[in-house]
Design a protein around this nucleic acid. Structure first.
Lengths: 165, 165
DNA sequence: TTGTATATTTTGTCAACACTGAATATACTG
DNA sequence: CAGTATATTCAGTGTTGACAAAATATACAA
């Protein structure tokens, strides 16, 4: 009964791990995030993480630093308690989508640099890079607007819940 | 003079390679794509790629297969010519953005699975996953709509250029 | 069929990297 | 200050994966 739930939690954690790995991050980063999403309370110490994930403290220490650096978790310390805790950073996922915007910018710039190299070439030769540039120019503008719309909606929801409270 | 251009092309190719590597793909995949973006004509044979990128044919063969599989390039064969050629697939970048939608879906589903595991828990505990789910539900709907708008615009542009022609 | 051009698969090597466990550093408590 | 709890760093290990080079397969031509 309780064991079954535990097992499902482990599966969940492993799957988040696999997703992260597929995204070019250490699998352990995904495991930590997955576990922090489930854990009650939502903040967990280094030792707790190490035990829950059956990993070494060194590994957790390194990977939490990475996760903090990319803005997905944060370190919190409670007054009078030596131990540090980690928790999902509020707005973590929004933050990660925002980083996608930067990737779009990189690609737009790459396309432009490529076109400079093809200065004076036949339109058919330039076509691929032009398509690429046009597309990323479009998304570089529209994607942040979409994020803005989400934040807007979120703020409204927040306000509603505060009234209800 | 011409040499300088060649050098800049190499830099460009390497940078696309690095970008791909950072995205969890083999660097060679990025190099091939980068080179195909610049090359005149836009289609290149396996041998040509191997020579231009100073890589083994085996490496090119494996990596082109990968690139075809993810939909970024395609193989073309000309009648009466033994050699096969590769070129950027028209709409390649659009296609790659579409794959982003699938990733959003995966994350939305993961969030929902996580919430099932937290059935009956305190709202504060569920909060992180609820934020995650709400957000990806939003983007799962809006992101394809954005892509649709781009395709729309693209079709218009296409039509214009055909009139001009 | 034999020979030739082309493509794929395979085997081996090397480098990168996540991870562990131990050693070290840091910070708090009495 | 000594002692203890906690966190970080470091050295070593194993695995993974990209890549090269060679062997094999496939398709075409004479």
């Amino acid at each position: 009964m309780n064991n079954e739930l535990r097992l499902k939690e482990k599966y969940f954690v492993e799957e988040v791990g696999l997703f992260f790995e597929q995204s070019g991050m250490p699998r352990m980063a995904g495991r930590i995030l997955g576990w922090l999403l489930l854990s009650d309370p939502p903040h967990q110490s280094l030792d707790e993480l190490a035990e829950a994930l059956m990993a070494s403290k060194g590994s957790i220490s390194t990977t939490t630093r990475l996760l903090i650096q990319v803005g997905l978790i944060e370190r919190i310390s409670l007054p009078g308690v030596r131990r540090d805790y980690f928790r999902i950073r509020p707005g973590a996922f929004q933050h990660s989508l925002k980083q996608g915007v930067e990737r779009v910018t990189i690609l737009r710039k790459l396309a432009e640099r490529g076109l400079e190299l093809l200065e004076g070439k036949a339109p058919l030769t330039r076509q691929g890079l032009e398509e690429m540039r046009d597309m990323y120019v479009f998304f570089e503008r529209e994607y942040p607007a979409l994020l803005e719309r989400w934040e807007q909606r979120r703020r409204e929801k927040q306000a509603t819940s505060e009234i209800t409270r």
